[in-house]
Every structure is written in structure tokens, then in C-alpha cells.
């Protein structure tokens, strides 16, 4: 049944994400062409240089705005689909399917993770595309970054591993935090949307407070600059553990409310 649910959820959310990703990919290719054009004309003294530079600058501005919009839209689409199908009009159909709330939530989470992963992959490819042909200028900067990390006693491999682990975890926690807030909001009778927003803000504040307490506690233990690596690694580890606990908690709360406290009025 999970496969069938995933098919349904990925198809439903794909109508938002597929055009978004395609536009991003096309914009990346156009951006690369414009960038190469500008670079090739720098020392030629061509009359067209200023025009091309202006077009590229305007394009780059819109491209950055689009990237920011995408980051926001990914969340908006995930929340919109979840609310509509789990607590809105289409919830009548969703909750009449012969599947448990557990599977319904799992499918929504996995669909959200799939789209975030695909979007991340496209972004990674587009970054590689921008650097293509210019690795000679990019690589020295990269080595400089690695050696500065090693200077404070940090292993670059462990740093990358930490980043990767936290990226994977955040792909789960981002949708789940919204889902849990919507589920808690479902308990607020006629003020469900307000309840969901309030719950999200409440959860966010609690997480921030826990994070600040941790940083204050660990901060007192740092007395020498060489301990910076310890601070960074501890923060990564703490984030990973806290996020894993929250993933479990959000998932449980969401499926519990939709299986035991469902009230579609």
C-alpha cells in the first residue's frame, strides 16, 4: 500500500515541483551561457559587452530571486498538499482509503523528501555547471578553505559527513515539523489554521531555546581557539541527535492525532 500511496502523493505534488525544477534547470543553462559570453568578451573591447553584462546582471538578480522563491515554495507546496489532503476537503477521500494513518503520514514525508532530494540534486548539478571549465580558479579557493579548517584541527572528511547527515535529517524534519503543527492545529476545533500556525511558532521557539541552552553550556567549555573544532563537531552531533528525536516525536504526534483524534467537520 505504501507504494500506491507514494505514487498518488508524488503525482499530486509533482504538478508543482516538476515545472519548478524544469524552470530552474533551464535558467541554470541560460545563466551559464550568459556567464561564458561575458567572460569571453571581457578583454575583447566589444561594443556588445556592456549590454551582455547588463543582461547577465539582470538575469542573475532574477535567478537569485527565483532560488529564494523556490526555497520558500518547496515548503509552501508541501504544506498546501498536506493540509488539503489530510485536513481539508480532500481529506474525506484520503481518510477513507483502506490504509492506516501511519502509512498516510509516512507517504507524505517520503514524497516531500523525494522532491527535496531531487531539487537538491538539480541545484548541485547547476553549481557544477557554473564551475565547469573554471575549476582551475575555483580549486585553489577550495584548498584554501580545506587548509583553514585543518588549521583549527577539523577534518574536512568529517565536516562533509556532518553536513551530509544533517542535510538528510533536515529533509525529514522540515516537512514533519509542518505536519505535526497541522495535526496539533486539528485539535483546535474551528480555529485549526490559527492553531497550526501557533503550534509551529511554539515548536520553533522551544527548539531555539534548547539550541541556545546547548550553545551556552558548550560555550563555557571553550577556552582556547584550538577547541573550535570541538565546538563545531559537538554542534553537528547535538543537532543530529536533537533532530532525530524530533523526527520521532513529530511523526508520532502526527499519526496519533490523525488516527485517534480525527474530526473532519
Amino acid at each position: 500500500m505504501l507504494g500506491k500511496l507514494l505514487k498518488k502523493d508524488i503525482t499530486a505534488t509533482g504538478r508543482f515541483f516538476v515545472p519548478m525544477i524544469i524552470i530552474y534547470a533551464i535558467a541554470s543553462v541560460l545563466g551559464k551561457i550568459l556567464m561564458e559570453l561575458v567572460l569571453s568578451m571581457v578583454h575583447t573591447g566589444s561594443n556588445m559587452y556592456d549590454i551582455i553584462l547588463l543582461v547577465t546582471t539582470v538575469f542573475a538578480t532574477f535567478f537569485i530571486i527565483y532560488i529564494v522563491a523556490c526555497v520558500i515554495l518547496i515548503k509552501v507546496f508541501i504544506v498546501y498538499d498536506f493540509y488539503k489532503t489530510m485536513a481539508g476537503d480532500q481529506a474525506y477521500l484520503t481518510h477513507m482509503l483502506p490504509v492506516s494513518a501511519n502509512l498516510l503520514v509516512l507517504s507524505k514525508v517520503l514524497a516531500a523528501v523525494v522532491w527535496q532530494a531531487l531539487t537538491g540534486l538539480v541545484v548541485a548539478v547547476s553549481v557544477a555547471l557554473f564551475f565547469a571549465g573554471h575549476y582551475d580558479t575555483a580549486i585553489p579557493g577550495f584548498y584554501e578553505f580545506v587548509s583553514s579548517m585543518e588549521a583549527i584541527g577539523m577534518s574536512f572528511d568529517i565536516y562533509c559527513l556532518n553536513i551530509l547527515i544533517n542535510l538528510v535529517i533536515s529533509a525529514f524534519i522540515t516537512p514533519l515539523m509542518f505536519f505535526a503543527a497541522i495535526a496539533i492545529g486539528h485539535l483546535f476545533g474551528k480555529h485549526r489554521i490559527l492553531g497550526a500556525i501557533g503550534s509551529y511558532v511554539g515548536i520553533y521557539i522551544i527548539i531555539q531555546i534548547i539550541g541556545i541552552i546547548f550553545l551556552v553550556m558548550i560555550g563555557f567549555r571553550i577556552t582556547r581557539p584550538e577547541q573550535s573544532a570541538f565546538l563545531v563537531n559537538s554542534t553537528f552531533l547535538f543537532d543530529a541527535i536533537l533532530n532525530l528525536i524530533m523526527i520521532g516525536a513529530f511523526y508520532w504526534v502526527t499519526q496519533y492525532i490523525f488516527s485517534r483524534k480525527l474530526n473532519l467537520d
Binding site: 481529506a91 474525506y92 481518510h95 477513507m96 482509503l97 483502506p98 490504509v99 492506516s100 485517534r260 483524534k261 480525527l262 474530526n263 473532519l264 467537520d265
Partner: peptide, 28 residues
């Protein structure tokens, strides 16, 4: 059909509480 949770009382479909297998038996 399990879309609302009763405040009191018990609802059964073919002798069982409304669960996913019960929803297969209901056309709503």
C-alpha cells in the same frame, strides 16, 4: 466511517472498530 471520533460510545463495522480493513467494507 471513522472521519469523526465519538465523544462517547462505540462504533463497530462487522464487529470491529473502524480500522483500515473496515474502510474497505464501507463505500462513503
Amino acid at each position: 466511517c471513522g472521519l469523526l471520533t465519538p465523544s462517547e460510545g462505540d462504533i463497530r463495522i462487522l464487529g470491529k472498530p473502524v480500522d483500515p480493513s473496515g474502510k474497505l467494507k464501507i463505500a462513503y
